[in-house]
Design a protein around this nucleic acid. Structure first.
Length: 242
DNA sequence: CCTCGTCCAAGTTTTACGTCA
DNA sequence: GATGACGTAAAACTTGGACGA
C-alpha cells in the first residue's frame, strides 16, 4: 500500500519492514487453520499479555512500549497500533454499555409514566363521580330550603326525626372523606401542587365539601320531605342550629 | 512564527478465519 | 468433503489535529 501525504515517520518506517509477528517458539493455535505463511494474528499469549498491560495502563510510555515489544517479540510499532486499536474497541464497548444503561432507565421511566397516566384517568373518573354526588346534594338542599320556608312549625317528634337525619349526614361526610382520601396519598403536598396546576376545579370542589355538607342546613338532603308529618305543629326547632 | 517529529483519535483497508449453503 | 460467498474481528494503515522542541 502506498503512503500518502506527509513523509513517513521513523515509527512508520518500522512498520514498513516485513515483520514476523510471532516469536520463534509460538505455534499458531491448533483450532485455527492457517491459509498462508503470512502470519499476522498475534498469538493468544501475546494478546493475553497485552490485555493484562492494558488493564493497568491504556497508554504506554515510549520506553515501556519498546520493552513490551521486546518481551513479546513484536515491533514497537505493532504494540503502539495494538494499543490504539484496543482503545478504540474499548471505547466502542463503553458506548454500547452506556447505551444499554440509558435505554433501561428510559424504559423504566416510560413504564412509570404510563402507570401515572392510568392513575390520573382513574382519579378523573372519581372526580366526576364526586361532582355528580355534590350536584345531587345541592339539588336536595334547595328542595329542603323550599320545604322549610313553607313549614315553619314542627312537633317534638319531628325534631327527633331530624336528629336521625343528622346522623345520616355524618355518614355522608365520612363517605366524602373516604373519596377524598383516594386522591390524597402520603405525599399530600405533592398532590395538591399537582391539582392546583392540573385540576383547579377539584380543589374548589373539595373546599365546597368541607364548607357545606356538614353545615346544619344540609342534613335535610336525605328525603326529608317524605318523612315529615306536615299536619303537626311545633316550635322553631331549627333555631338552635343557627 | 515556522518547521519538524511524535502521538493520538477516528475512519478505512487488508487479512485471517469461521459459518453456511 | 470441497468450495466459494459472506460476515466479523483484528492488524495495519491514512488522515488530520495537537503539542512540544
Amino acid at each position: 500500500m502506498m503512503m500518502q501525504g506527509r513523509e513517513p515517520s521513523p515509527e512508520a518506517t518500522e512498520a514498513d519492514i516485513e515483520v514476523e509477528p510471532f516469536s520463534g517458539e509460538d505455534e499458531p493455535p491448533i483450532t485455527r487453520k492457517r491459509k498462508s505463511k503470512n502470519k499476522r494474528r498475534f498469538s493468544d499469549e501475546q494478546v493475553k499479555s497485552l490485555e493484562t498491560i492494558f488493564e493497568s495502563e491504556t497508554k504506554l510510555e515510549p520506553r515501556k512500549k519498546v520493552q513490551v515489544a521486546r518481551e513479546l517479540g513484536l515491533q514497537p510499532r505493532q504494540v503502539a497500533i495494538w494499543f490504539q486499536n484496543k482503545r478504540a474497541r474499548w471505547k466502542s464497548k463503553e458506548i454500547e454499555k452506556n447505551y444499554r444503561v440509558l435505554k433501561a432507565n428510559y424504559d423504566n421511566l416510560k413504564s412509570r409514566l404510563e402507570s401515572i397516566k392510568k392513575e390520573r384517568e382513574s382519579l378523573l373518573e372519581q372526580l366526576q363521580e364526586l361532582r355528580s354526588l355534590l350536584q345531587k346534594s345541592h339539588d336536595r338542599d334547595s328542595e329542603c330550603k323550599d320545604f322549610m320556608a313553607n313549614n315553619k312549625d314542627m312537633s317534638r317528634e319531628e325534631t327527633e326525626t331530624v336528629a336521625g337525619f343528622t346522623a345520616k349526614s355524618s355518614s355522608l361526610q365520612e363517605e366524602m372523606d373516604y373519596q377524598g382520601a383516594i386522591y390524597s396519598d402520603d405525599d399530600k403536598s405533592g398532590n395538591i401542587a399537582y391539582l392546583k396546576q392540573e385540576e383547579p376545579e377539584l380543589l374548589k370542589i373539595n373546599e365546597d365539601i368541607d364548607g357545606s355538607l356538614i353545615s346544619p342546613m344540609k342534613w335535610c338532603s336525605f328525603d326529608a320531605g317524605s318523612l315529615f308529618d306536615l299536619t303537626s305543629t311545633s316550635s322553631h326547632w331549627w333555631d338552635t342550629w343557627t
